[in-house]
Design a protein around this nucleic acid. Structure first.
Lengths: 199, 199, 199, 199
DNA sequence: GTGTAATCGAGACGGTACGTCAAGTCTTGTT
DNA sequence: AACAAGACTTGACGTACCGTCTCGATTACAC
């Protein structure tokens, strides 16, 4: 599709991402080396350097590859009940983060992002934005349905919902369980409840 | 005081932390090497390896050293107005995070913590807990003063207040300005407002 | 020619041996470090470790390189007068051992050989054997010419000729001069004189 | 006895030499470290540095200690038959060199001597000279008894006898057996035979 | 079909840093 | 004063990777 991938070997690309994924899980992100990825993938080092600018970029790609099958746009469930839907989604996310492969990859990615502004930009645009759009869409629908304050700052609302979740996972300050997910949803919805909507 | 530090050279300890601080700012955390820290500190590498288990531990100590002078316990302002006090604190924190030295050190620390559970534990116990205690104390005072719901989960309340703040800083998803600080405080306080307290 | 040297950089090889030679002369064998050789040769340490198993092996190679230009086989002079020829050779060897570069290299080599059986084997096969063969050939010619006892043990004869010489040089028990060389030759030839050949 | 050993702890001295001997045998001379000697001997590093100038000096002392019990002067057997006596002595020396402890110590010592002129001097004076004197005395007795040429250079004679022997041991060019010892003695005595004494 | 040029695997290269070991000096308290 | 203990600076060890650079050997498009 894009012109700079004309002659690119898809076999090598997949092998590199798979090797990166496996090795991150096996030895951890800091001990992941381009050298080892090339070895495991049966690929020349130059092939990696040709297509990815850094170790972090490889891992970011590996993260994207994990959810590559979802060809269509991401959509959140919409049963009409915003609170229930958000709890469903947050609980599902908690389960996802329990996957050692995804978890190890994401930890490595966050470590690099914290420290590499370039990669942070790529992350925001390629990983974060699509899902954030989907989440915002669901919130907007809820807002239209009168389940959120009409002037609620939906971006801020998303921050309240997800940032504590990610932080708890990243710093391991507590378990990512359903109770936490539910409490987060409830508190956030209270903060952006429509007028007079307090029990 | 403690027996295992009997013969430790305080001169070397300070020099290492200062060198680590300076070098993180200068070249960034990933390019910070124990070798360079030793060189800049005029210290043998072995002295660093003798007293710190890893590069991350040195940086954690350097972060602690930045606030070492505050000998007394940490206390948050308490003017009686919880909202105003929280805004003051959050705005001040935003300013602090603008300091290149602190910012670079913390980014490095977060990068390592994301990926090193041992260091994460040290961080929680030595850096996070003291300030979290102080924040909780202020919230508890506000709760007693009727400015928070009597059954509010204060830990969750802190998460809503700070996690979005830290996440925005870490991922550079937006500016850390007074407007954001104020919006965070207001949303969080709405989520944990005392009964019937909606204007 | 040999398959394991296909991609080897000859430029690096020469630079390493030259640096080793120069540094041994400059600082002495015990203070010769692989690190310094690499630095002086403008070569990565790994390149040295890739092609030589130890410091001693580098020095052995440097010794070989000193006489590398002599492409042809080694041959001792044969004027028909064995005694005169041996004196010529031994005197010449004494002069050679006066060369600081050769002397320093050989001292280092002997020091390592004394203590490393592997290197000792390499030395015997790659350095000692060729010249020993040449010396034996000359003795054999003398024997055929009736200048040595027909049943003389020529290997032992060589030992008597050269071992005292090397020992005096190694332990510095005396000067390596023409008088000593001549005395050695005369005594040895007396020991292996043909029958009835006593003045 | 000597003034500079007034306060010297003999217990420490013995412990150091014993530790050096044991460690040389165990790990080989090049991997022998002052640090390990001190540890094994239960002695402070400073104590070693106070009394010995170098690792080589410690080993030289350890070699001397191995033959310390022989309080009296060294004397070679004198049965009246020089050839038989020399064969006895050389065969005995061959056996001695088979002792792993002595052999390992001597190899280390020779390695250092090859490269350290200071130590070489100490070796010549403290180890070599006494035994060389004894050997010379026996040769002189043989010379007086008419078993050697009256004008034989006895020092050279000793060189022919011992240097090939030491060289074979040092370079491992062959076994140190009785046959070699006998052959050496016979060849050397032929070289310095009294006039007309050829069978 | 057959060049031909980019990509591929492999891996040597000059480097930097790793974490460890030991050297030799210095300090502290004990005998 | 000499001792055991051990922290200190220094420097080298041998290893792992970095990112660049040749090497042939595919390989896939243009002719």
């Amino acid at each position: 599709m894009s012109p700079d991938t004309t002659r690119r070997s898809d076999r090598s690309r997949r092998a590199v991402l798979a090797a990166a994924r496996d090795l991150v899980v096996e030895v951890g992100y800091p001990r992941l080396s381009i050298e080892a990825v090339a070895r495991h993938a049966g690929v020349g080092k130059q092939t990696i350097y040709r297509w990815w600018p850094s170790k972090g970029a490889v891992v970011l790609d590996a993260v994207r590859a994990l959810s590559e099958d979802e060809t269509g746009g991401i959509t959140l469930p919409d049963t009409g009940d915003l609170e229930a839907d958000l709890k469903t989604v947050l609980r599902a996310t908690a389960v996802e983060f329990g996957d050692p492969a995804l978890s190890a990859l994401l930890r490595g990615l966050y470590a690099e992002i914290a420290v590499d502004p370039e990669l942070a930009m790529l992350y925001r645009e390629q990983v974060d934005r699509p899902v954030t759009e989907a989440k915002l869409a669901r919130l907007r629908a809820g807002q239209r349905a009168g389940q959120l304050h009409p002037e609620a700052d939906l971006a801020l609302c998303l921050d309240l919902l997800y940032a504590p979740f990610v932080q708890r996972w990243l710093l391991r300050t507590g378990p990512l369980d359903a109770a936490f997910a539910d409490a987060l949803v409830e508190a956030t919805l209270r903060a952006f409840a429509p007028v007079g909507d307090v029990e």
